[in-house]
Structures are given as structure tokens and as C-alpha cells.
């Protein structure tokens, strides 16, 4: 499930926004670095939670644990960007921004890779891939699922 790793750009050459992990979100970003999609699950109500936080938004429990998600999901909605509104994304055009709903429930903002924009559709099955964008940061992206 890991995409071919090209040499990532040095941080100072990378012209796009990068995440600033916090104590709470650090495990998510460390997971991505390790090629795993890690999200939180509440030990009390058993619901999966994303984005990362210190308290379950459903039952207010503080007993959140990190689990490795399946990486499988469906495109919930998306948009095709054909005009860069940020200079850092000019070279990526056209690119697909998507909201993927994971099998576990939460939704993530991501990109759909390895597919022509015309071939992306709502409810399409997708799976996580991990893209090293700088020596420090890996983003979780998705591609059309190979499993039928």
C-alpha cells in the first residue's frame, strides 16, 4: 500500500502548506511517516474519532486510544482543481481534492492519486497511500482500491 517514494523536497524548497503537529496530533503524523493511517478510538463509546483530539466529541471521555485504521474507504465528495489558487499547487494541476469516508466512520480531507480526474466519482472505493512530501512530513493520500 506504500507508494513509490521519490526523493522528497527539502522543507525550505517545498512551496505548499505543511502541518504543524501538536502533542495531540503527533501520533497521526508519526503514523503517516511510518506508512500507517492512525486514528483515535474512544475506549468508552468505541467510536472512531478524527481529527485528533484530547476528548471524545461523542461521549466526552478522555480515554482515547490510537488505532491503525484499515486505510479503506469511499469518496464522500470531491472537487477537481484545474486552476491553482495557491502558487504551490500550480505544478499539480489538475488535482483531485476529496473527502474520504473511512470504513471506520470518520472522514478525511485528502487527494485522490493515480486516477484521472474524470474517473473519480462519489462512492468510489479507495485505499490509503503515503506520500513523503519533505524529509519530515508524510501526507495520507488515497488511490482507487485494487481489491474488488
Amino acid at each position: 500500500m506504500t507508494a513509490p517514494r521519490e526523493a522528497p523536497a527539502a522543507r525550505e524548497e517545498y512551496g505548499k502548506p505543511l502541518p504543524q503537529p501538536t502533542d495531540v496530533s503527533q501520533p497521526f503524523w508519526e503514523g503517516a511517516r511510518a506508512g500507517e493511517l492512525r486514528i483515535q478510538r474512544c475506549r468508552d463509546c468505541r467510536q472512531h474519532v478524527f481529527y485528533p483530539r484530547s476528548m471524545c466529541p461523542l461521549c466526552l471521555s478522555e480515554r482515547l486510544e490510537w488505532v491503525t485504521a484499515s486505510g479503506r474507504g469511499k469518496v464522500y465528495s470531491y472537487t477537481v482543481i484545474r486552476r491553482a489558487m495557491h502558487p504551490g499547487f500550480q505544478a499539480d494541476l489538475p488535482y483531485v481534492l476529496a473527502i474520504v469516508e473511512l470504513e471506520e466512520g470518520p472522514r478525511l480531507t485528502t487527494n485522490i492519486m493515480a486516477a484521472e480526474p474524470e474517473d473519480v466519482s462519489i462512492d468510489m472505493a479507495v485505499e490509503a497511500v503515503f506520500e513523503d512530501v519533505t524529509p519530515e512530513v508524510t501526507l495520507v493520500k488515497f488511490r482507487p482500491s485494487e481489491a474488488k
Binding site: 502548506p17 501538536t22 489558487m85 495557491h86 504551490g88 499539480d92 481534492l97
Partner: peptide, 24 residues
């Protein structure tokens, strides 16, 4: 948008993917 560098808060999960402007 020309936001660069590190972004915190909930936007750390959006902006890095190029979800950067109201139209998007």
C-alpha cells in the same frame, strides 16, 4: 491563498492537500 510554512489547528488536515480557498 499563498499560505506557506506550517499550519496548525484543524487546518493542518486540509491545507497541505491543497484545500486552500473558499471556492474549494
Amino acid at each position: 491563498s499563498s499560505a506557506g510554512g506550517a499550519v496548525g489547528g484543524w487546518m493542518q488536515y486540509n491545507l497541505p492537500h491543497g484545500l486552500v480557498t473558499p471556492a474549494q
